[in-house]
Design a protein around this nucleic acid. Sequence first.
DNA 1: TTGAAAGCGCTAACAA
DNA 2: TTGTTAGCGCTTTCAA
Lengths: 344, 344
Amino acid sequence: MDQAGERREPTMRDVAALAKVSTKTVSRVINDLPGAGAEVVERVRAAARTLGYRPNLTASSLRRSDKRSATIGVLFEDLSNPFDSALLRAVEDRARHSGVLVLAGSSEDDQSLQRELLVSLSARRVDGVVVMAAGGHQDALQQERERGTPMVLVDRPPTFGSTDCVTTTNRESSREAVLQLASLGHRDIAFLGDRRTLWTSQERYTGYLEGLAQAGLTLREELVRTDLHGADLAETAATELLDLASPPTALFTAQNLVTVGAMRVLRARDLHHHTALIGFDDFPLADMLEPAVTVVRQDVPGLGRKAAELIFARIGGDTSPPVHAVVPASLVRRGSGEISPART
Amino acid sequence: MDQAGERREPTMRDVAALAKVSTKTVSRVINDLPGAGAEVVERVRAAARTLGYRPNLTASSLRRSDKRSATIGVLFEDLSNPFDSALLRAVEDRARHSGVLVLAGSSEDDQSLQRELLVSLSARRVDGVVVMAAGGHQDALQQERERGTPMVLVDRPPTFGSTDCVTTTNRESSREAVLQLASLGHRDIAFLGDRRTLWTSQERYTGYLEGLAQAGLTLREELVRTDLHGADLAETAATELLDLASPPTALFTAQNLVTVGAMRVLRARDLHHHTALIGFDDFPLADMLEPAVTVVRQDVPGLGRKAAELIFARIGGDTSPPVHAVVPASLVRRGSGEISPART
DNA sequence: TTGAAAGCGCTAACAA
DNA sequence: TTGTTAGCGCTTTCAA
């Protein structure tokens, strides 16, 4: 008895044999190249259909002179994070228009994992990569870039030259947030930030300092808490801040989960209508909380589109000097950032 | 002047030449295969390093007898959706352990787009696919499956046999939610659901009906609203329901965005502490709202892990009969579902 | 332990 | 318009 499942996958040769033409002709038909008679085209198409022929892009890109795989790599920190997945989606949409597929991976902000994934992508000969660089040195990225792989960094800039990047207005928007709080009369504005090794954290902190300076306020070192990786650490920090003899009347939380942690504490102490709060990064339902949360909103689809645009330009052969594109974020006033300090 | 960028990518041949061995020996070293003298291994490694050689998986998988690409495809509805991206992440984690990369795409619940993406994956000879089937017929999926491509459906079952799938307890958990509301004395429980073409919507509606029946309640047709695709439509529907002469005292919202839309309306009418609400699908900050929202929570990482486990088993050669795995969801009581009806 | 020859499925370069 | 030959970078097969 024949086992039906054991049929060999049909190739161009099989199609050619059935259509009584050469493989080259089949190739022309499959790829819609000119120089094939209308009648022959039909015969080849019919043969392909009969056999259930599927083109093999792997074999094709191996032989083709441009060596394109029609695939790009995306290496973000955590694909389940809303920011990362929104970016991925934006890149994917652009890729689809070029018939390009996306190989996606999460590097968990781990250098060696990022290096491994990069090697994996490299072995598959992706046409380019969009990367959220893991903290620390970027040797692996630089090395891959110098091999000639088109590369765009998002969210964080390269520590080496020669590659494009797309970031948001971390510093300027943070400054704006602090100025907003200061304009309401707040003089004791706390800063709660994520890991200091992150470029974005540093930028947001610098913006905070600039805001204070511009508003003529003095920095109170004890109101600055950093390395708050996760909502739990943020809760602890917020608790300590509010326990100070002279607690802050406003909080600037420089990251998503930090904002959530701080909110929990304010709520637990029933201070959420008395202590002002502005967070960096928008989040779902921020408008449904009480009070609704004022945030700095990044233009995530905009970041993704720009990154995609750049990588495809480079893949297309653009050799102009590297670009650092900055996509503006905006302050979304919802209430929590518009609370004035209690009169003294 | 030489253009440094014009160097040809080194191949195994180049490495072989430099190490003064055959390409076969290089192949053995690169793939850590036995049968290579310790001394030769070192010479080859050194040569590879000197030249900056990168193995070409594309060429390798073309020639190799198993034809594996060490790549799987993931085709979900929308990768920027938290449910989808959490699933992707779970699959990716499992894939990484096998040195497999993930080609990811969003089909937007569009059949023809799904078909196109499937063809793209197929052309790249992925070793298997994990798919969230788009609504309507599944001809393309079935066809691909019947070619022999290992396939696991998630969230929604296949309309054809012969393939694995992983879903959640849509019906049972919906029944449980309705029974919870009924046990508090609610007799007028509304159902607000997503598109009726979705299998999950149908299942959740069936669970709703079962819950009513089991509680001895009569179905009031006017309390059932379906095809609410997006928060806006849900808002409209909720408004209409609350405008009824005899409005519902409890809402069962069978999808994420529907829950959000309903909440907005309850809040706008200041009914959020008086009308009970249970939603299907958890969402971030559901516990920070007032009242905190009671939901049916799917075990998303569990779904993803199970799907990954199945696809890798099939890729590994498992030919046992197709499985329909069901991952239990759980009712998370937070407050909004524990509101009793006003006394009459 | 090592290598020579053939060929995976396809396209480039040329010729007819 | 169509076909022939060679070869992409690698692994298989088989021989040394």
